[in-house]
Design a binder for these strands. Sequence first.
DNA 1: GTACGTTATGTAAATTTTTACATATACTAG
DNA 2: CTAGTATATGTAAAAATTTACATAACGTAC
Lengths: 184, 184
Amino acid sequence: MTTLGYAILGLLSRETLSGYDLTRRMGEQVGYFWSARHSQVYPELARLEAEGYVTHSVVEQRERPDKKVYEITGTGLAALREWVTEPARPRPTRDELVLKAYSVWLADPAEAARLFREAASRHEGQLERYEEIEGWMKREWAEDLGRPGSPRFASYATLRRGLGYEREYAAWCRWLADALEGIR
Amino acid sequence: MTTLGYAILGLLSRETLSGYDLTRRMGEQVGYFWSARHSQVYPELARLEAEGYVTHSVVEQRERPDKKVYEITGTGLAALREWVTEPARPRPTRDELVLKAYSVWLADPAEAARLFREAASRHEGQLERYEEIEGWMKREWAEDLGRPGSPRFASYATLRRGLGYEREYAAWCRWLADALEGIR
DNA sequence: GTACGTTATGTAAATTTTTACATATACTAG
DNA sequence: CTAGTATATGTAAAAATTTACATAACGTAC
């Protein structure tokens, strides 16, 4: 099983979804920790089905093209549950912007500062979107956020990671932009 | 040009290095923002040389096998300098541990808490190593850390990113482990 | 009625990355 | 003297990911 397979099972353990829906989730809810294009999702669904982790049924629609709705099987749920507590082998972090920072001494400081200020804005924007979701969760899901057995708790946990990640990233970009412009 | 190519040029803009040295750097200094195996480094060096970004000379050694020492060319340096301030297209963040957190509601909370506490320890360990380097840099490189035109400033900038990343990641792991064990 | 956007599902090709295969020198520890 | 480790450089195969190709139904705006 691939990590992408577990990403898909993780989504299907919460609700039934089509390949199209899954692809959208990969760029939204799950987007800040895993992602995939539809060209990866469809073949992976076929593989998961061949191995008995999911099944599908065709849903005919009147106002839209028909779709295949996928559902996780007992086997799939068991595999997912087991995978969760298995230690993850550390994958290398790759970040092109930090790589640029490593060679920033070669660039014009003012031009470079612009680059990092723009990045700061992007991460602050994402942070604000996450903060809105957090506010919404705390209002609507209040009781569930303390229950480790609830999927809402898990959603909140990953959101917390997104919040921390964006906050820290934005602060670093601002610090670097300031330093490049000689602001102490 | 690939991002890996710029990663290599970024290292060669500071010092001449062999393919073997470059591979080690990819797992150390540059490790917390880019990495590559030697099977990627050697072919990439050949490509960079074919395109005129680097040159090499064979250095004969008595106590070790001979090596090819690579040097960046004027063309290479110009390309690197230009790349630094070009906006980086955002790549998706993929993190298996956060993906596991998304499905943590299916697992035994105590077992899951163990997983995240172990991860917290790993990130705290890395943080400590970075903090030691930071202390060393502040002592030894004090004058350079305020000069955006110095490679030491750039090294410090990337280290700052590593520090923030590990600190935030470790805190999140601890928070999640606590929450899983019902600690408010 | 036609151009565009959304929904919907796939395949093909290219690129990137990882894992495995392959070889060779020289030092050190047992 | 032999096994292991570090240095040193490559290639081959597999896996993962991205980009491009390809099609089709249906609704809306012009």
